[in-house]
């Protein structure tokens, strides 16, 4: 697993952002505890972790709203420590979008260009709004935009400045679930088209898995694992990563995800299987989750993709799985 730890250059890409041994101490806790990362250029990079894991503090230190106590932040070879937020070539899409309520969508997007003293920015603003599909709504105030439109305005506002790095702080969390999936797709497409490095802060593993080129999973101020979505899902380095990215049945030190756990009244003759008693079977439409208790008291969940299958409570069943599907974690 060590081969993918913090080694952004392995794929032959240049490093955009480098965090070197960052530390941030709050009165009660060390919220960022020696974080080192290499984020390749043009990468969609996610910082994934539960609330309080330190990802927001890292985002604030990259953006310049807070300074690290120790360590360095280097963007394309330039040290960012000590620079004010407005001196950094980094822009942000905020969780709440933070659109200026007294300015139209157009003026929100033009805000940063005006600060740079640009005068011929009309085309840039219009292009940027068109890119996110809001050309028609340029003159609207934020109060008259829908949630998804606000989110896209915030994106246009941050991208129009052509930052070297775009930070996205849980940008989808304020949207309703149906919209979230659609915007997620759009976000990925935009990133691929413009090629700017995105650093995406999220606690939602599904978002991180579906969007990212790379994910750094964080817990308690430290990095648990860095890798591609497949790597961290299929080969989690730690028990925490395995559990945070999806449900796991733990049978001693071995973990098996419910979707790889097979169930039947009898097991095929040549595989090792575990005897269990069905506790409940939950019908989920496209699948059935069967919870069954083994002799030593562990409850194991098996996801059955045949919705027609039904189990009675108290029924005796056998559970088994492929050896190659077992998750082997370090702790």
């Amino acid at each position: 697993m060590a081969i993918i730890f913090g080694e952004g250059n392995l794929l032959g890409m240049a490093t955009a952002l480098e965090l070197k041994a960052l530390v941030k101490q709050f009165p009660t806790a060390r919220v960022v505890d020696g974080i080192s990362l290499n984020i390749p250029k043009g990468c969609f990079y996610s910082l994934l972790g539960p609330s309080g894991c330190g990802k927001t503090t890292i985002f604030r230190m990259i953006a310049g709203f807070s300074e690290p106590d120790e360590g360095e932040i280097i963007l394309n070879g330039r040290r960012l420590n000590g620079l004010r937020p407005y001196e950094r070539p980094v822009t942000t899409v905020f969780q709440s979008y933070a659109l200026f309520p007294h300015l139209t969508a157009y003026e929100n997007v033009a805000f940063g260009l005006r600060r740079r003293g640009e005068t011929n920015f009309d085309k840039k603003v219009r292009d940027s709004l068109a890119m996110v599909g809001l050309a028609e709504k340029a003159e609207r105030f934020p109060a008259n935009l829908s949630g998804g439109e606000k989110q896209r305005t915030a994106l246009a506002r941050a991208l129009v400045l052509e930052p070297e790095l775009l930070l996205l702080d849980e940008p989808l969390s304020a949207l309703d679930p149906a919209l979230r999936k659609r915007v997620r797709l759009e976000l990925k497409q935009i990133q691929q088209r413009i090629g700017i490095t995105f650093v995406f802060i999220t606690h939602d593993q599904e978002e991180a898995l579906s969007l990212s080129d790379r994910i750094a999973v964080m817990n308690k101020g430290k990095i648990e694992q860095i890798g591609t979505p497949r790597e961290i899902y299929l080969q989690p380095a730690t028990r925490f990563v395995a559990g945070f990215l999806g449900a796991v049945n733990w049978i001693g030190p071995v973990g098996v995800r419910p979707e790889w756990t097979r169930i039947g009244r009898t097991a095929p003759g040549d595989v090792e299987s575990v005897a269990a008693t069905v506790e409940t079977a939950v019908f989920l439409g496209d699948s059935v989750h069967v919870h069954a208790k083994t002799a030593d008291g562990a409850v194991i969940t098996a996801q059955v993709h045949d919705s027609a299958v039904d189990y009675e409570n108290g029924e005796q069943v056998r559970l088994w799985w492929d050896k190659s599907d077992e998750l082997r974690v370090s702790q």
């Binding site: 407005y86 822009t91 942000t92």
Partner: peptide
């Protein structure tokens, strides 16, 4: 976050 957004977009 409004003021932070302004700083982020280049306002002092």
């Amino acid at each position: 976050a409004l003021e932070e957004a302004a700083l982020d977009l280049g306002a002092n």
